[in-house]
């Protein structure tokens, strides 16, 4: 029973992997469907609001991917944060924290598998959802820009790896899973606010989370994300290093 297998069992036996894949797959299927049939849905709902007639332009493949990307950033990241907090809050149950702390020389040996397996599971779920959204958009609306979708998925996956690293750092200090979830979500919500502050925002990981919606639409180039990718690649190991240091210095 290695620490890596322990994390795999945590994902499978607690149905966390099912929850992650299920959420992304659900929105991957729902996004293009709602984009394709939004007009019909509004017609069924009445079609008019106090005399105003709502006329929607014909759906495009960009709409299908954008619908999924929007839900993936919000609900998908929320689920990923909850799953990550459950795995990375090693002291949430003190007796279990004592079990691992007194049997390992460095907590990096414990935290690294927890981070890697959780982040990988979130990324796999995200890719599955993206694939479903891509396929359904193609079938219902038309083919989205393949390069834009692929790069958008890569950047989205990188953002998820960053989000889980944020949870790792927060969980090293927070005393409960709920506390880890709430603080991590606040941090991840503040980043998009920063991203609208001129050029500073492009140096945060936040733009990566919406790349899947932006790149297929054609408004952005890959180079526009270079700063965010660079910052994220630096931030992830830095956050993990700090998480290990904080967890090791914490008293139980």
């Amino acid at each position: 029973m290695s620490l890596w297998r322990l994390e795999w069992l945590r994902l499978t036996r607690t149905r966390r992997l099912v929850a992650l894949v299920g959420v992304y797959l659900f929105f991957g299927l729902l996004g293009p469907l709602s984009a394709r049939y939004l007009g019909e849905i509004l017609d069924l709902a009445g079609g008019e609001l106090e005399g105003a007639v709502i006329e929607l332009p014909p759906p495009t493949p960009v709409d299908g991917m954008a619908q999924f990307a929007s839900n993936a950033v919000q609900i998908g990241t929320l689920v990923a944060v909850v799953v990550a907090a459950g795995a990375l809050s090693i002291d949430a149950i003190p007796e279990m924290g004592v079990f691992v702390r007194t049997r390992t020389r460095g907590l990096g040996r414990v935290l690294l598998p927890r981070y890697a397996v959780t982040a990988l599971a979130a990324i796999v779920a995200y890719v599955v959802g993206t694939g479903a959204a891509w396929y359904e958009t193609w079938v219902l609306i038309g083919p989205p820009d393949a390069a834009g979708v692929l790069w958008g998925a890569v950047f989205g996956a990188l953002y998820l790896a960053f989000a889980v690293a944020v949870v790792a750092l927060v969980a090293a200090r927070a005393s409960s899973v709920l506390g880890s979830v709430l603080i991590s979500l606040i941090v991840l919500l503040v980043l998009p606010i920063l991203s609208v502050v001129g050029s500073v925002g492009r140096w945060t990981p936040a733009p990566l989370s919406v790349a899947l919606a932006e790149l297929p639409a054609g408004g952005y180039e890959l180079a526009d994300y270079a700063a965010a990718v660079g910052a994220t690649l630096v931030a992830i190991p830095a956050l993990l290093w700090m998480a290990v240091r904080l967890a090791e210095r914490r008293e139980r």
Binding site: S2, L3, L9, T14, I93
Partner: peptide, 30 residues
């Protein structure tokens, strides 16, 4: 460090592990 074992007053383990897996995990660490 590896020769030291700590037994808390109320041991708790991940409930989805079997007893054997808990001991296997401890053995893999020490």
């Amino acid at each position: 460090r590896e020769e030291l074992a700590v037994l808390p007053d109320t041991p708790r383990f991940d409930p989805w592990l079997t007893g054997r897996e808990v001991v296997e995990l401890a053995a893999s660490l020490v």
